[in-house]
């Protein structure tokens, strides 16, 4: 389970924060999209979840562990439960595709034999079996993206964070990747996908978290008496201005603040420990 409580992140002292007072909860086994304009803080959010960045305020809890309580030495172990597809891929330039994916397994100490078995399998799942000896610079953006996806998935993480995993892919490839993520999710992995592809978002009919200028404008949940009900695939409420003109900041912020409800966290706070391993 992923939970953010009043999380803010400022890169610089002056200027607007990249994230402002964000509270969110994504349960174990969920599939959630995060959408929002460029610069609205989506990648920042992902980086906070991986403890690549530290929030300037608020607390983040993942699988029952408060991230600010994780000691330096325990960070690697924490990260191994999380697969990440970075927006800028972050492949190792001096290693070929096979080695890039195998690396994720070497890190966790997987046996050479299993690595030999797993890597070709995942590479063919993302349609790159033929290119395993190529280096990242020899691949197209879409191909690099698929390598990044393969690397994120190979260790069968508990949580998959994908920052624009289909940004460079054509419709057919994008759908193949989305189907793959859906499949992973059905196997029990929590999947969080940042995307600009509203067509896919609507068609997949999953929870949609909308960000705008560093705040959560809609966390995709409607609150019933017995907890949240996620509205699948709905970006329609704000859909028109999501790609369109941005309303003034002041008005938007208050609208977002008004939309967010803190109550449910209290309702569900008992879950926290249950997800710990």
């Amino acid at each position: 389970m992923i939970r953010l409580e009043h999380v803010s992140k400022s890169y610089t002292k002056e200027g607007l924060p990249a994230l402002h007072d964000v509270s969110l909860q994504i349960n174990a086994g969920d599939f959630a999209f995060i959408v929002g304009d460029s610069g609205s803080g989506k990648s920042t959010l992902i980086k906070l979840l991986l403890k690549e960045l530290e929030p300037t305020a608020g607390t983040i809890t993942i699988n029952g562990r408060k991230l600010n309580k994780i000691r330096r030495r325990q960070i690697p172990k924490f990260r191994r439960d999380i697969g990440v597809v970075f927006q800028d891929f972050r492949l190792l330039k001096d290693r070929n595709i096979y080695q890039n994916v195998a690396f994720a397994q070497q890190v966790i100490g997987e046996s050479a034999r299993n690595i030999k078995k797993n890597v070709p399998k995942i590479l063919s799942q993302v349609g790159l079996a033929a290119k395993y000896r190529s280096y990242p610079r020899q691949l197209s953006g879409g191909e690099q993206q698929r390598v990044a996806i393969a690397r994120a998935l190979i260790n069968r993480p508990k949580i998959l964070l994908a920052d624009e995993p289909t940004g460079n892919l054509d419709a057919k490839n994008a759908w193949e990747i989305m189907d793959l993520l859906d499949e992973i999710n059905r196997d029990g992995t929590t999947v969080v996908v940042v995307t600009h592809n509203l067509e896919i978002v609507r068609a997949m009919n999953k929870r949609v978290i909308q960000m705008q200028k560093g705040v959560v404008r809609d966390d995709g949940a409607d609150w019933e008496d017995d907890g949240p009900v996620y509205r699948g695939g709905q970006v329609s409420t704000y859909g028109s201005d999501y790609f369109g003109e941005q309303p003034g900041l002041a008005g938007e912020e208050s609208a977002a603040d008004g939309f967010f409800r803190e109550g449910p966290f209290l309702n569900q706070s008992g879950d926290g420990g249950g997800d710990e391993d």
Binding site: L50, P76, R79, V84, R90, K93, D94, F103, A104, V107
Partner: peptide, 16 residues
């Protein structure tokens, strides 16, 4: 340096 940063994000230990 960049590679090392990536390794850490994937969960490589200092030792590794």
């Amino acid at each position: 340096r960049e590679e090392i940063g990536i390794m850490k994000l994937i969960g490589a230990t200092d030792y590794f």
